[in-house]
């Protein structure tokens, strides 16, 4: 099997199926039988109280952690406990809760490194196929510059990524994922710690991804954003899937209100 091709974005059925996955750390069951599907070409939110296991689920789906029991399918491919770079090559990209830029690389290089398979990463090609390298590098460079332009990072392209502000690092991480042409993009709290104007912008970028055929699964606490851009919501509590549906429907679900939404409603209007 080749791992260089994305799972098809055009096929039928959910792009991701997660069946009763569990993960324990010592005696703590961080994920305890989570089961859900992520519909293709939609934006799905993964919400839940702190400690519900949302980030652990993202780590399990992306291969950063090993699943104890259960199955995960990306399209028709069983990716349960597959090596994470192979999962990425199938088109599942992710961002991290705390932005993880490649600090010693420039902003532009952060994007240029993203295409999953590059001819220029082979020693043979470096020395014996220089034209292929030049052609590929030129294509990647043009595309990276266009994406940087889109994300408002063009003027910072030659700065080291470590020099960016927190908000800029969020944008860099998302744009780097876009450069990798994902089929399914897992965003771990993309709006956390950014100003309202940037929240609006990032929301717009996510909608653009959907328009381009990318499926998005995002962990998000900002229910205002969830309500406005997400087609579907998965509620996680104590490592289990509590409910799925549209947020407006979930507001009527007593269990969901008790486990999560109640906290926010009681705390005042959503941010």
């Amino acid at each position: 099997m080749r791992y260089d091709d994305n799972v098809s974005a055009a096929a039928d059925g959910p792009i991701l199926r997660c069946e009763a996955i569990t993960k324990a750390f010592g005696g703590v069951n961080a994920v305890n039988g989570a089961t859900f599907e992520v519909p293709r070409n939609k934006i799905t939110a993964l919400i839940g109280p702190n400690g519900a296991g949302k980030t652990t689920v993202v780590n399990l789906l992306s291969g950063a952690l090993k699943i104890d029991t259960g199955k995960v399918h990306l399209g028709n491919i069983d990716i349960t406990n597959m090596e994470r770079y192979k999962i990425a090559r199938l088109g599942l990209m992710r961002t991290f809760q705390l932005s993880r830029e490649l600090s010693g690389l420039t902003v532009l290089e952060n994007l240029l490194v993203a295409p999953k398979v590059q001819a220029g990463e082979s020693l043979f090609n470096i020395f014996f196929r220089p034209r292929l390298l030049q052609r590929e590098e030129k294509q990647n460079l043009e595309r990276a510059l266009e994406i940087l332009q889109t994300y408002g990072l063009y003027a910072l392209r030659d700065n080291r990524a470590s020099d960016l502000s927190g908000g800029q690092k969020k944008l860099l991480e998302i744009s780097r994922g876009v450069m990798a042409s994902p089929s399914l993009f897992l965003l771990d709290e993309p709006m956390a710690g950014v100003n309202p104007a940037l929240i609006e912008k990032i929301g717009g970028y996510i909608l653009d991804m959907k328009a381009q055929g990318v499926t998005v699964l995002m962990i998000e606490h900002n229910l205002n954003v969830v309500e406005r851009i997400c087609d579907n919501v998965i509620v996680l509590a104590e490592g289990r899937t509590l409910a799925t549906g549209k947020l407006s429907e979930l507001r009527e679900n007593k269990e969901v209100v008790t486990a999560y939404l109640g906290e926010i409603i009681n705390a005042g209007p959503s941010h």
């Binding site: 992306s62 950063a64 994470r84 770079y85 990425a88 090559r89 990209m93 992710r94 991290f96 993880r100 490649l102 600090s103 010693g104 690389l105 290089e109 240029l112 490194v113 993203a114 999953k116 398979v117 590059q118 001819a119 220029g120 990463e121 082979s122 020693l123 470096i126 390298l133 590929e136 590098e137 780097r176 990798a180």
Partner: peptide, 21 residues
């Protein structure tokens, strides 16, 4: 080359490099 760039990506954060395939 792009290979050198990938080396430096791995140096900076192997988890991120792995998450990029």
């Amino acid at each position: 080359s792009p290979l050198g760039r990938t080396f430096r990506a791995i140096r900076d954060d192997p988890d991120v490099a792995s998450a990029l395939g």
